[in-house]
Structure formats: structure tokens, C-alpha cells
Design a protein around this nucleic acid. Structure first.
Length: 595
DNA sequence: AGGCAAATACTG
DNA sequence: CAGTAT
DNA sequence: GCCT
């Protein structure tokens, strides 16, 4: 192909990688890596907005070239006015940016216009053996402009006054831009319009520097571990996060990759949720750990259009709807949900009518109480349930301590279930009491079903001397961390119904018994959001050489049990000691909302 | 390009 | 062992 | 899907 192509940039959007590679090989020389260096951009794009988005997501800002003077002026004026409202960047007085002289389209400078063409232009040209006129293929023509930059948003007020952020801010010089802006060296990667600028202190010129004029990235957001960051329940970016949640959910349901891609979303979401400012630009999001190109694109699309196409598609997808309905049955997860769908079932009624006896006992419970379990539990009710459990525990033996963990402890108004941890300063008091507690609660009709009751978690490698002797029966263990997952119903109300209350929903309740010595670990292990817990384990393993779980902390090398909680008075003090012992800054439970 | 992703216990 | 749960 |  003897085509003499101008500098071309190939968009990979909606192109399979194989195709991209093929095209790249085929085009060869004229290909450029930086979109701003291109004269022509080709790709599977048909909409102007999409084309613009492709530029933005690469940090290049363009304005449409309209071949009509008046229009152009109007547009330009608007843009300048926008610029006026920013207090930022005075810089460009010295620069090019205003394309008064928009002739002279020197590549790589503002004013240089770039045409986005449908892929067919390329194919047809190859066929014709010559470059064809572009009109028929033109999707968008843009001219590079200085980035319109929003003023750094005010940090959102955090719920916790003692959060790291406020402390950091208190001890940080007031908004000196250079404190976060200057980025000596390496600010000149392939860069549009960077004619080396006067290096007046906080002057910047390069795209990067300008773009980097963003709120400072809180240092905790440099950590890849969500357990090292305060993550409040509410984020200034909740609306965007909600979109990501939907994508994550969809990945989980319809992709068989061991949840890996869903996990990627979880990580990104956890990072964004810890970001205390309202996002305003693509580059801003890409500073966050686990937020790569994918999230830049999603953010761009969402910001521009207020929608994410893929999310919309998911929401109107009937199969997804069915899978979701199945997935929400207790004891049905993604595999089973897909299996149900594959059998031709489409909703809960199908499950009941066609498959009731194929369900496991727990799944039957899940179906029976489907609606109840969907209902969220108000804090008040969580507290009542917990109080009943504690009463029954103390009836067996005085002196139990209890902490309600889970979402409740993270401050959620409504919980999906109730998780309580019980412990007792007397070592042997926690042994095998779950069964007894559950039995008694069941007898008094608080518990209607037991989903699982597990006992005996034996520990190894700890104080062999003492526990061997002191542990009477129970082959196995010194340290038992027993738990029961049960279906709960308010017995008071069952006995004499309050007419004001419509019904008496069943609740899922998790009762966990922890030995006193490691109760701090149990509390840590059952309080955090999912990502918090995963990252905590990962952090322990990789940064501290220990293995954390809710039964304790062990040295990786020899498995020796480490007592991090010695001398901690009550349960909460013990929890704090665990953080200390792991070299982690304390996080209030309400800052563990990593989802 | 390839490695990696938290850790365990229970049920059928 | 596969699947689900915490 | 991100990280090295």
C-alpha cells in the first residue's frame, strides 16, 4: 500500500485487540502514539461526542472546528468567558493559546486541527490506492485548545472531625499551589504545546502541570491498601461510584473469571470512595490507585453525557434482571444464578414452581424469606436484637462483652443483617456456648431457623504448654471461634403483635463467639467493609510478614501466634491494640466503608 | 506480557 | 470437589 | 483490570 498517510492516530475504541494490532502493523510509519500529534484520527467512531471524548480521555482538549466564522467566534467567546471565571493559571499570557492566528496549523500546537474519520476512510482509501476526500467520513474536526480548568473544589467536609485529612490540612500551608503542583523533572513527556516555558516558580506551561493543578492527593491515597485510608460512608462522588457498582455487579454475574474483573472494580471503587474531593477531570481520577484508563474513560463518558452506555445496557437487559433476582436469594450466588437461568427460569416464581425440590435446604429458606431478607434493618432493631442475644449469653454465664460489628458498626442507618461478637474475659467461658445460646434463643422463638452453626476452630502454634493442660475435652482447641448464622424473628411481636407494625420480618443474624485473647482481631475482622478486610490481610502478609485473620495474628515464617492485644482492657481497647501491633494507623469504624 | 487477586469453614 | 457463606 |  503506497498510501502516503499523514500522521495517523488509531483509536482502539470498540476494536478487538487483534484488529488493532493488525491495523497498526499495516499502517506502520505514519502512526503516532500521541493523539495530539496526529492530523488524522481513525477509529470505530460515528458520534461526534464520542470523538471528543476520545480526545479528552487522552488529556487533550479540543474545540470543534466549524467552518463558519460566526459560529466559531461565538464559540470562542464562550470559551474565553469560561476562562475568566477561573482564578487559576495566569500562565498562558506568554503562550500561544489563543488561536488568533489559527492559520499556521503547525502540528503539535494549539490551533492545529485534527480530523476524526471513520475507519472506512482508511479501508476505502487502501482499496482506491489513494487518499480519498475526507468529507464523507468526517465525524469530528477539532482544534487543540488550552485546557479549560476548573478551580480546585473545596474539600468536602468529612464526617469525622478527627480524620487524617483535617489534621493534614491543619498542618499544611494554605493552598500554596506549588506545594502540590511543582513536579520538577519529567513534566515533559510527549507534550503538546510545550515550548519550554519561563520557569517562574509556580508558573506552569505544560499540559501536565496545568492539569495537575488539582487538589493535593491526600497521602493516604497513595497507598494501594484500603485499610490505610480513611473511607467514609459518603463520598462526594457517590453518583459516579453508583455507576461503577452496577458495572461491578454485572461483571460478577455474567463473567466466569473467579470474580477477578469484579474485584478490579471493587478496588477502584474503594479508592474513589476514599477521595475527599469532587472529581472534575479525568487526570484527577487516574491519580488514584487501581484507577486506570478504564476509569478515566468511564468518568469522561459519565461526566459528558450523564450516562454510561454500558450501564444503561445492563439495566435494560432482561437476562441481567433475572440473574440479579436469583443472586439475591440467600445461598444462591453467581454460579447458581446462571444455572437457574440456563434451566430456563426467569424469576422467583419459576424457581418455586419448577425447581423447589432441587433447592438446598438453605436455598429454600432463602426463597421463603426472599422479601424479608431484602428488607434492611434499622439501627434500633439491630440494637434490640443484640441486646436479646447478650441477655441470653449472660444467662449462661455472667460477664459477657459484646460488640455489634458489620455495617451497623460502620455507621450505616440500615443494615442487611446483624453481626454480633461475644466474648468473655474468662478463657473457657466462650467454649461451646454458641450452641447453648442458639438453643435457648430457639426455644424462646427468637430464632426460627439455623443456617449454619459451626464450632471448633482449633489453633496451632500457640502456647502449647498452657493450653494442653487447661483445655479439658474438645479434641482440638484452645481457641475456638464459633459462630452461628440464624434466622431471627422478634419473639415479643410474634406473641402479641403490635398492630402498628405491618409484619414481623425475619432477619439474618450472625452470632460470633471469640476467645478473649484475640477478640480484638475478631472485631477488626468483622467490622470493615469487604475491601478493607481483604486489603488488611494483604497488607499484613506483604508489609508486615504476618497473617491476619479474625482468630489472631501469626508470624508468616513460623506460624507463631503473636499476642497483639495483651493488656488491652476492654474489647475496643483490644481492637486499637491490634491496629498498633500491625503498625496501622487507627481507623474509626466509620472510616472503613470501603464497600 | 504475564502475574495476580484474602482466607476459611460448611454443605451436598 | 464445587459452591456459598462469613 | 491493574500492577510490575
Amino acid at each position: 500500500m503506497a498510501l502516503h498517510l499523514p500522521p495517523v492516530y488509531l483509536l482502539n475504541f470498540r476494536l478487538p485487540t487483534s484488529e488493532v494490532l493488525k491495523l497498526e502493523r499495516e499502517i506502520g510509519e505514519p502512526l503516532v502514539r500521541d493523539i495530539s500529534e496526529a492530523k488524522i484520527v481513525i477509529g470505530k467512531v460515528t458520534r461526534k461526542s464520542r470523538a471528543q471524548l476520545e480526545f479528552k480521555s487522552r488529556g487533550v482538549h479540543t474545540e470543534e472546528v466549524v467552518h463558519e466564522t460566526d459560529d466559531y467566534k461565538a464559540q470562542k467567546r464562550r470559551r474565553i468567558d469560561e476562562g475568566k471565571t477561573r482564578e487559576v493559571i495566569t500562565v498562558d499570557s506568554s503562550t500561544e493559546s489563543e488561536p488568533e492566528l489559527d492559520l499556521d496549523p503547525k502540528a503539535n500546537s494549539p490551533g492545529h486541527s485534527i480530523k476524526v474519520l471513520k475507519l472506512d476512510w482508511y479501508f476505502d482509501s487502501v482499496k482506491a490506492g489513494a487518499l480519498l476526500p475526507t468529507e464523507k467520513y468526517l465525524v469530528y474536526e477539532g482544534r487543540i485548545v488550552e485546557k479549560p480548568k476548573a478551580a480546585p473544589p473545596e474539600p468536602r467536609k468529612l464526617l469525622r472531625t478527627e480524620s487524617i485529612l483535617s489534621r493534614a490540612r491543619a498542618s499544611t500551608p494554605p493552598r500554596i499551589q506549588s506545594s502540590y503542583r511543582h513536579n520538577p523533572r519529567r513534566s515533559h513527556s510527549p507534550n503538546i504545546r510545550s515550548k519550554t516555558q519561563p520557569r517562574l516558580l509556580h508558573e506552569t506551561t505544560s499540559e501536565h502541570d496545568i492539569a495537575d493543578n488539582l487538589p493535593p492527593l491526600p497521602s493516604y491515597l497513595k497507598s494501594p491498601y484500603s485499610c490505610e485510608r480513611p473511607t467514609p460512608a459518603h463520598s462526594p462522588n457517590e453518583a459516579f461510584i453508583a455507576q461503577l457498582q452496577k458495572l461491578k455487579h454485572a461483571r460478577k454475574l455474567d463473567r466466569d473469571d473467579r470474580g477477578i474483573s469484579a474485584l478490579a472494580y471493587s478496588k477502584a471503587i474503594a479508592a474513589i470512595a476514599a477521595y475527599p474531593y469532587t472529581l472534575t477531570s479525568a487526570r484527577e481520577i487516574s491519580r488514584l490507585p487501581h484507577c486506570g484508563q478504564r476509569y478515566v474513560e468511564l468518568y469522561q463518558e459519565w461526566k459528558e453525557t450523564g450516562h454510561i452506555k454500558e450501564v444503561d445496557e445492563i439495566e435494560s437487559d432482561a437476562r441481567m434482571k433475572s440473574l440479579k433476582e436469583f443472586y439475591e436469594i440467600f445461598d444462591v450466588a453467581e454460579k447458581t444464578a446462571r444455572q437457574f437461568y440456563a434451566r430456563g427460569w426467569r424469576d422467583l416464581d419459576d424457581v418455586i414452581s419448577h425447581g423447589w425440590d432441587k433447592l438446598s435446604p438453605n436455598q429454600q429458606i432463602g426463597v421463603k424469606f426472599y422479601d424479608d431478607f431484602q428488607e434492611k434493618i434499622p439501627r434500633e432493631e439491630v440494637e434490640k436484637i443484640a441486646a436479646v442475644i447478650l441477655k441470653y449469653a449472660n444467662r449462661i454465664r455472667e460477664g459477657f462483652h459484646m460488640v455489634v460489628v458489620g455495617g451497623y458498626r460502620r455507621g450505616k442507618d440500615m443494615s442487611g443483617d446483624v453481626d454480633v461478637i461475644l466474648s468473655h474475659p474468662d478463657d473457657d467461658a466462650t467454649d461451646h456456648v454458641v450452641e447453648e445460646i442458639v438453643w435457648n434463643l430457639a426455644e424462646d422463638k427468637w430464632i426460627t431457623h439455623r443456617l449454619t452453626v459451626s464450632t471448633t476452630n482449633s489453633e496451632r502454634g500457640q502456647e502449647p504448654v498452657s493450653w494442653k493442660g487447661s483445655m479439658p475435652k474438645s479434641a482440638g482447641g484452645f481457641c475456638t471461634l464459633d459462630k452461628a448464622l440464624v434466622v431471627w424473628q422478634d419473639a415479643d411481636q410474634a406473641r402479641n403483635p403490635d398492630p402498628k407494625k405491618k409484619h414481623n420480618p425475619r432477619r439474618r443474624v450472625d452470632i460470633i463467639l471469640s476467645p478473649w485473647k484475640t477478640a480484638g482481631c475478631a472485631i477488626v475482622g468483622w467490622t470493615g467493609g469487604t475491601m478493607f478486610e481483604r486489603d488488611l490481610r494483604k497488607y499484613c502478609r506483604h508489609e508486615r510478614g504476618v497473617k491476619f485473620d479474625s482468630t489472631g495474628v501469626r508470624r508468616l515464617s513460623d506460624g507463631a501466634w503473636l499476642d497483639l492485644e495483651a493488656g488491652g482492657g476492654d474489647l475496643l481497647a483490644k481492637e486499637k491494640k491490634v491496629f498498633e501491633g500491625l503498625g496501622l494507623e487507627w481507623r474509626d469504624p466509620t472510616e472503613r466503608c470501603t464497600g
